[in-house]
Every structure is written in C-alpha cells, then in structure tokens.
Amino acid sequence: MASTLPDTISSLFGLGGLVGDVVGSLVGAVLVGSLMLTMTALAGPWAKRKITAAFTDRIAVNRVGPFGLLIIVADAVRLLSKELIVPEDVDRPAWDLAPFVLASSALLGFAVIPMGNGIQLADPEVGLAYVFAVASIASVGLVMAGYASNNKFSLLGGLRAVAQNLAYEIPLVITAASVVIFAGTLQMSGIVEAQTAALGFGLKSWYAFVNPFAFLLFLVANLAEVGRNPFDTPEAPTEIVAGYQTEYSSVYFVLMYLGEFLHIFLGGAIIATVFLGGPTSPFVGVEILPGFLWFVVKIWAVFLFTQWMRSAIPRVRIDQLIEIGWKGMLVLSFANLVLTAVIVGVIA
C-alpha cells in the first residue's frame, strides 16, 4: 500500500523527522479539507438545486453564468452578508459552538478515507471505528443547537435528532462490523484492498456485491444518519419549522448547512470505501478512470441517491422512525452480523 499523503508531501519537500511530520500533515490536511469543501460548499448546493429540479420537473438556476454556475458566488455573497441574528436568551457559548461542532466533526472523518492516488491523510488500524466515532460527535452538536437556541421547535428538533441518531447509529455500526468480519481488518486501506479480489463475471468482490443485504441496510441507516427523507424528522420543515437550525442565520446557518452537506458526503465516502471498493473500478483489470475520480463519482452517486429519496419518499413519523430503528433495523443488522460470522467461520 502506498504511503499516506503527509509522508508523500514531506518527502517532496525533502523534510524528515518531526518537522516533516508536522508540515506534511498540515499541508495534507489543508489539501484534503479544501477538496471536500470545494465539493460540498461550492458544487453541492448548485448540484442540489439542479438535481432536485430535475426530479421535480423544473429547470432551476440557469440565468447567472453558464448553467447557473455563478449562483454559487451570488449565494456566498448573499449568505455571508446577512445579519447574524442572535435571539434573546440563547445559551452562549453552546449556541455559537454548535455549528462548528457539526461542520468539523464531519471533516475529521475524511482524514482516514482513502481517496485514491495516494490521497489519504492517515491510515490507522482502527480507521473504521474512528470514522464512526467522529461522525457521531455531530449528535453533541445537534443537542447543543437544539437546547441552546431557546426555541421550542429547536428543542423538539434536537431531541428528535438525538433519538434518531441513537436508533440508527447502532445498526449502522453493526452492519459495518459484518464487513469487518469479511475483511478481517478495521484499517480503511485494508478494507479497500480486500475488495480488489475477483468475484466472477469480471467483477471485483465489492462488499455491495458480496453482501447486498448489508449494503441495503447500510444505505437506509445512512439516510437516517444524515437526516434525509424518509428520515428527515429532525428538521421536518413543515412540522417543526426547521428543527434545531431554526434560530441560526447568516454565517452560522452556512456552517450548519455545510455540516449537513459534509455529513452526506462523509456518508457517501464511507459507503464508497466499505461497500463500493473505494477508489477503484468495479471490473477486474479495467481501470478506466484514475482512482480519485472513481471515488468522487461514488460519493456523488450516494449524494444523488439521498436527493432522489428526498424528492420522492414521504417522511415517516417520529414514533414510526424510532420503531423502524429499534425493532427493524437493529434486529436485521444483528441477523446479518450473525449470518456473516457463521458463513465466514464455515468457509474459512
């Protein structure tokens, strides 16, 4: 396996030792961070407009620049120049910190994702556990936002968000654990490596092909994790206004929004890595695109899926959501885990 991005950078600069580690990590982090932010903050909102418009039979932005691309600039100016309204009696600094917690928790997750062409900041042996751990920090941000806003709709949204994350995080992790049984490692590069073997019909042994059931479970649990239909109850715009983000405006709102997008993309990155072979093509011996592009395509495919669900599927009620989580998903994911363990144990 190729060395990680910080090593490559430090050797490029001819640095070694502690200085090399520090410089390499910083430069690498900036690179990866900018990359993800470009995708989520710049391309994301524009693409979301276009995708939703296509689903809902509209045209969306097409006047500002070619394909309406310059709307990104207009949006940025608009959002950043708005007044930051701080409601009375909000619980500061929790209220101010929440947007940062939300946005940064997702960014942290990208540190261990192998994006192809040697772009990976770190490759710890517990990579998968790390991703889930940092992604769940977002729950703390949601509670902070919901509680500190001093708004009843925010409070309801925050409570819903936590209830939902609890109910779906567990099936998510359990399902991922079934993959770990296959791969025999928590290391992200190891999981990708394990999926390069041939499965037959010219396909690689992606876990989405090997265990489609787990893939489906993960996809559904991920929808709940990122709060998109049918599981967008924490925001539920027609029920509780905007849930935990009701009282946020201007820059804070941008951060909230960015955090949400980053989480969708992180979810996409995890699915790409764990089930879709990471930065590789699905066919044995045929690498049409560079690894990094494969990776980006997969992330966007998951993004497209979330937007599709959002346009077409009704939202479930909060009690139904909890019921599906605890009584359905959890049981199914454990069944999947046990089954996988038995099969792997028998074959191996």
Binding site: T56, N229, D232, T238, Q307, R310, S311, A312, P314
Partner: peptide, 18 residues
C-alpha cells in the same frame, strides 16, 4: 398535502402545480 407529509422538496407538489 404532499408538502406536509413528504417535506419541502417533494416532486408531487411540482407535479400537481404542473
């Protein structure tokens, strides 16, 4: 009604409007 049950970005609202 679809907006109320589905959420803000539902296709049904736009279909009905169309």
């Amino acid at each position: 009604f679809a907006l109320d049950v589905y959420g803000d970005f539902t296709a049904i609202f736009m279909y009905a409007t169309r």
